Amino acid sequence: MHILNKDIEFIEEQRACSYFENKISDIRYKYMYACSPNSYQTMLERGWRRFGRMHFVPECKFCTKCVSMRIDVKNYKFSKSENRVINKNKDTKLYIRPPSMTMEHLDLYDKYHEFMNRKKDWPYSPIEPDEYSKSYVESSESYAKEFLYMRDDKLIAVALVDILPNAISSIYCYYDHDYADLSLGKFSILAQIKIAKEMNIPYIYLGYWIKDHFSMGYKEAYTPFEVLTNRPNLEEETIWKKYEL
Rank of each mutant, 00 (worst) to 15 (best):
H2M: 09
I3F: 12
L4C: 08
L4P: 03
L4R: 12
L4H: 09
L4D: 09
N5F: 10
N5S: 11
D7P: 09
D7T: 09
D7W: 05
D7Q: 15
I8W: 07
E9H: 10
I11W: 05
E12I: 06
E12M: 12
E13F: 08
Q14S: 11
R15A: 14
R15K: 15
A16S: 11
A16M: 09
A16F: 07
C17I: 02
C17Q: 01
S18C: 09
S18R: 10
S18T: 12
Y19D: 02
F20M: 05
F20A: 01
F20L: 08
E21G: 11
N22D: 14
K23E: 12
K23V: 02
I24P: 01
I24H: 09
I24G: 02
I24Y: 07
D26Y: 08
I27P: 03
I27V: 15
I27D: 03
R28S: 12
Y29Q: 08
Y29L: 09
Y29P: 06
K30V: 10
K30R: 13
K30S: 13
Y31C: 06
M32H: 07
Y33Q: 09
Y33T: 09
S36V: 04
P37R: 02
P37I: 01
N38I: 10
N38F: 07
S39P: 00
Y40E: 00
T42G: 06
M43T: 03
L44Q: 01
E45C: 11
E45R: 14
E45Q: 15
R49P: 03
G52N: 02
G52D: 00
G52W: 00
R53G: 05
M54L: 15
H55V: 15
H55R: 10
H55Y: 08
F56R: 04
V57M: 07
V57I: 15
P58F: 02
C60F: 10
C60W: 06
C60G: 08
K61R: 14
K61E: 14
K61W: 05
F62K: 13
F62C: 06
C63L: 01
T64M: 08
K65A: 15
K65V: 10
K65C: 12
C66L: 04
V67M: 08
S68T: 15
S68Y: 03
I71P: 01
I71Y: 00
D72Y: 07
V73C: 03
V73N: 00
V73Q: 00
N75Y: 11
N75L: 11
N75V: 10
N75W: 08
Y76Q: 03
K77Y: 07
K77V: 13
F78M: 02
S79M: 03
K80E: 11
K80D: 10
N83V: 04
N83Q: 14
